[in-house]
């Protein structure tokens, strides 16, 4: 039985706090579970807190990147928060860039960023409607 990371639904966003050792199978299970929940709840944003993680290797980096890419395809934004400075240095030296994934220092900043990303999209939609009406 694979240990699973809980995913909390708060309004239009999903909140994930990775507090266990991010084993390979746990990481892959999270990717699947998140994708399911995004679709089930029509979530527009995912906040992933990695402040308890003590390292991110290339495998974990790839999984986190894939989560962001997959959720983007499902019309959902991902923000990664709480990365330890030592991990940021190590990831850069290792060569992981996490392109396409938004980051914020704290969960609070992350929620603000998600709100901004989500409202930008809504504005675009309403703008589109106006054009359609004309």
């Amino acid at each position: 039985m694979v240990e699973r990371i809980p995913i909390l639904k708060i309004g239009e966003t999903l909140l994930v706090t990775i507090q266990v050792d991010f084993h390979d199978r746990v990481a892959l299970a999270l990717q699947e579970d998140l994708t399911d929940k995004i679709v089930t709840h029509s979530s527009k944003g995912v906040l992933i807190d990695i402040s308890s993680l003590e390292m991110v290797d290339s495998f974990m980096g790839r999984v986190l990147g894939n989560i962001a890419k997959t959720s983007r395809l499902l019309d959902c934004h991902t923000v990664l928060v709480g990365m330890q400075p030592a991990i940021a240095i190590t990831m850069t030296e290792l060569g992981i860039s996490l392109q396409g994934i938004s980051t914020a220092l704290t969960a609070e900043d992350g929620m603000e960023l998600l709100k901004a990303l989500m409202s930008k999209k809504q504005k675009r939609v309403s703008h589109g409607r106006q054009i359609a009406r004309k």
Binding site: E54, M55, V56, D57, F59, A86, I87, T90, E93, L94
Partner: peptide, 26 residues
Amino acid sequence: KRVVALLNFSLVNQTKIITAASELAR
């Protein structure tokens, strides 16, 4: 992680060593 904690490595160096170990073990 347990072994590097015995030496006085900085947190950044501890993280680097554990990450390198993870890469090579994989």
